[in-house]
Simulated scan of single mutants.
Amino acid sequence: MDDPGTSTDCIPCQQNEMQSFEQVTAPIVADLKSNLMDPSTFIPPSPLPGPSIAIEFCDRCRWLHRATWLSTELFLTFPPPTLKGITLMPMSADETAGRFRVWLFLHGEQPHLIWDRKVEGGFPELKVLKQRVRDHVQPGKSLGHSDKK
């Protein structure tokens, strides 16, 4: 029987790998700090295949529940194959404090920033978020009561 204090499934990160990552990203982070409110300077996360969404959120602000709720609602409205995946990306660095961004990835296109909490001045209403996603992935789709004024 394995010792409960150890794990055989995980391989710890090598210290030199983390240093090289920090060395590579340090200039990017420095540039981002000077443009915190300019969406054109935001660097999107790595894309998933096909139409997919990534939700970046500040883990220190405890926004996991909000991110999971939005991902569930988006999957219910745009089930596979319309959306192939939704990734939740908790962030806990100083430069990502207070972040809540929703990115849309479409095949062969630049990522679309669907929502940024700081730029928009708050969290998205579900209706607005669904409409923005729909306008890119299924422009003719009716959202039922979400489309009514």
Rank of each mutant, 00 (worst) to 15 (best):
P45Q: 01
P47W: 05
P47N: 07
P47F: 06
L48I: 12
P49Y: 10
G50W: 05
G50L: 06
P51I: 02
P51H: 09
P51T: 09
S52G: 04
I53Q: 12
I53T: 08
A54I: 11
A54Y: 06
A54R: 02
I55D: 03
I55R: 04
E56S: 09
E56R: 01
F57R: 05
C58N: 06
C58L: 04
D59A: 10
D59R: 06
R60M: 03
R60F: 00
R60T: 05
C61K: 02
W63T: 00
L64Y: 04
L64K: 03
L64S: 06
H65W: 01
H65S: 08
R66D: 05
R66Q: 10
A67H: 04
T68A: 05
T68W: 01
T68S: 14
W69N: 09
W69A: 08
W69L: 08
L70C: 08
L70Y: 10
L70V: 07
S71V: 14
S71F: 13
S71W: 13
T72S: 15
T72C: 13
E73A: 15
E73H: 15
E73Y: 12
L74C: 15
F75C: 14
F75I: 13
F75D: 13
L76D: 14
L76G: 11
L76Q: 12
L76T: 11
T77Q: 12
T77K: 10
F78M: 05
F78G: 07
P79Y: 09
P79F: 11
P80D: 12
P80Y: 09
P80N: 09
P81K: 13
P81I: 14
P81Q: 15
P81H: 12
P81T: 15
P81E: 14
T82R: 11
L83R: 08
L83T: 08
L83Y: 07
L83F: 10
K84W: 11
G85R: 14
G85E: 14
G85K: 13
T87I: 07
T87Q: 12
T87D: 07
T87A: 15
L88K: 09
L88V: 11
L88R: 11
M89R: 13
M89V: 12
P90T: 09
S92D: 06
S92P: 01
S92I: 00
A93C: 05
A93K: 06
A93N: 10
D94C: 05
E95T: 06
E95A: 04
E95P: 01
E95D: 14
T96L: 01
G98Q: 03
G98T: 04
G98S: 07
R99C: 00
R99F: 01
R99W: 00
F100W: 14
R101F: 00
V102M: 05
V102G: 04
V102A: 09
W103H: 06
W103E: 03
L104M: 08
L104D: 09
F105S: 04
F105N: 01
F105E: 02
F105K: 02
L106R: 15
H107T: 14
H107K: 13
G108C: 02
G108S: 02
